[in-house]
Design a protein around this nucleic acid. Structure first.
Lengths: 232, 232
DNA sequence: GGAGCATCTTTACCTCGTAAACATGCTGTC
DNA sequence: GACAGCATGTTTACGAGGTAAAGATGCTCC
């Protein structure tokens, strides 16, 4: 990991991301990041004012990956940036596409996902990383372009973000109790649940461990949008 | 805070909850809890094996409050526990009622809410606190009682939990940048956003800080349920 | 060639979680 | 009533982690 190349914020965040991806959030410490870069701990502080800031750097990375995933598609930022083209894709499709992309990016970095939920508790909206703000701005722009009123815009904005976030968190929740066990039910530790008290949990068993996947996510987005969009 | 009464797990968790409610999650340390109870730090370890366990204790408290909120109403556990009564309330109403109750309880302890999202990443499903498992069991029971197939049961289970969780997190995200500022826009720090880059965020401004409230939460639940329930 | 700055290192402090050994007083037994 | 044994809380101590402050080192530009 020692690299004679100069330190940069990118490299620091990159090292942090590698560590979190590989060892989980608990494995992330300033000392560990420094080691990964072959540098003394305090050197990092020239590129990030604090560990909290570094965490935001991780979140930003996720959103940058999101942008990369969408750019080039008809749902990328350009489609928004370009003046009010009439040939912009239908906004519902765009919302679904963004939700799907977010899902993929988050599942690609499952250990970072908790931060998507956590950081907003600490960091006020207007202080969130630029890439995050850009995502919000794009979403709002699309809704406004669609001719939705302010009320509907805010409702759908809230609904879509809530749904995507909650869905991702739910998909990533831990269900494996004993990783060495091949039998799904034992693997989940279902035998630990008293049958008397938890018959359904046991009956549904491994079905609880199955992911919903992108399709269900998409279905939810459209259901919510249809509910909160005005009944044109 | 020194209290000559004997220590118990309830008292330890209770003290932790007071601290988190009052000072935030960051204010919670084993030493601080001990101080709150007028006791030495290590005394706590006779009642909780670790701080992580204590965090789960906080989550459990939330779910116990949830149960208290619902008990007595037609949506409480009894309605589920009683054998297949035909007079059980319509299951959709029950889901909405549970969602609303969860919302109220979570907003009553905003500082604990992050744990609702976080703990499941660490604690495997079958090791979650009993009150949490009971909530899952009740939900699954209701869906099964409604005659939904396994597939629909799992889909709705996932959808409702995801939505409620995501919605709560979204409602509780920080939007205040400068608490001392009375003017809403400045209070949010909107002036910090470049107009060129973030016109919508600025235009919608304080509308972004407005809560969706219980009604929107309920609307989302029904929208999702209708979408994922079979088209009877 | 030397002043001055950017970059990284050294030291050190404080907070935390928690292991291990210890003190203390109550319980129940004979 | 004395004492063994245990439950309850305390003392001490270690190691990990975030980060402040001052120091070393070498490159840039006059």
């Amino acid at each position: 990991m020692a690299d004679r190349a100069r330190l940069t914020r990118e490299r620091v965040v990159g090292a942090a991301l590698r560590i979190v991806d590989g060892e989980g959030l608990d494995g992330l410490s300033m000392r560990r990041v420094a080691e990964e870069l072959g540098v003394e701990t305090m050197a990092l502080y020239r590129y990030t004012p604090s560990k909290d800031d570094l965490l935001d750097g991780l979140v930003e990375r996720i959103f940058i990956e999101l942008e990369e995933n969408l750019s080039g598609t008809p749902f990328g930022a350009e489609a928004v940036a370009g003046a009010g083209d009439e040939d912009a894709p239908p906004w519902r499709e765009a919302l679904v596409a963004v939700a799907r992309a977010m899902y993929r990016v988050a599942l690609a970095h499952p250990n970072v996902a908790p931060l998507l939920a956590l950081r907003p508790f600490t960091v006020p909206l207007t202080r969130r990383p630029p890439a995050v703000l850009r995502a919000h701005e794009r979403l709002l722009t699309r809704l406004e372009r669609a001719g939705l009123g302010e009320r509907a815009t805010l409702d759908i904005y809230r609904a879509v973000i809530s749904w995507v976030l909650g869905y991702i968190l739910f998909e990533l929740r831990e269900v494996v109790d004993n990783p060495d066990e091949p039998e799904p039910a034992f693997r989940m530790g279902l035998h630990r649940l008293p049958v008397k008290e938890f018959p359904r949990l046991r009956a549904l068993g491994p079905g609880l461990a199955v992911r919903g996947g992108e399709e269900q996510l998409a279905a939810g987005v459209t259901a919510l949008v249809d509910r909160f969009a005005p009944p044109t």
